[in-house]
Structures are given as structure tokens and as C-alpha cells.
Amino acid sequence: MTDGWDDAESLVPLYVQVKGRALPRAQSTLDISTQVLAMPMDPSRLEPEARRLYELCYRWQSVAEISAHLRRTLTSTKVLVDVLLEEGYLTVGAERPMEQRETLQLVLDGLLNL
């Protein structure tokens, strides 16, 4: 559909790229909107793409934003994020998007003040 997306994936199977993983860990609840942040670690040992991901996350970034910037599909982005979470390179905010009253009230106030 879009030129240049996931070129690497068409040549190398996903499981080879991400440490033998094709899916996030079973207990992973990463959502498209889950935000992650880089932890103070030395990224020099990371593979280039993992390192790019890590460096993107010097500010909070959602899985969707990382996917867009790295031009990786959502699923393969989740796998890579999950690996970096497991290895301690990233930390996660609230895993699930929030829908409680208190959060909705914050969102409503925020929108009204835009």
C-alpha cells in the first residue's frame, strides 16, 4: 500500500529479527496507545532498529507513534517494545487506555481549555 514499509520484513522473517519472537509475551497487554519511556541504560549493544526505538523513547511515545516513526507494522512494533521492556531498556505507563470517570473529566477539561 505504502512504498518502503517493512522492506526488511519482506526479506527476513519477523521471528529472525526479534529474537525468535513473532508475538509479544502472552501476558503482554500492550495497546496501540500504550506509552513507553527509555530507562537510563547503555543502548550501544542494541541492534540498530532496537536502538532507534530506544532513542525515540527519550520522550514518552505510544506504540502507534513508534510504529509510524520506525515504519514497522503495529504487531512487529509491539514485539520489539515488549523485548525492550523485558530487558529493562523501556518502562511502561499505564498499560491499558483509561476510561474511568476521573480520567474522562480530565480529558473533558483539557479539551475545553484547548
Binding site: S33, Q35, W60, G93, A94, M98, E99, L104
Partner: peptide, 8 residues
């Protein structure tokens, strides 16, 4: 806690 909210 850092939180995200979604609207479709």
C-alpha cells in the same frame, strides 16, 4: 502515572 486515552 503516565496514561493514554483513546477516541476512535
Amino acid at each position: 502515572m503516565h496514561r493514554s486515552v483513546k477516541i476512535v
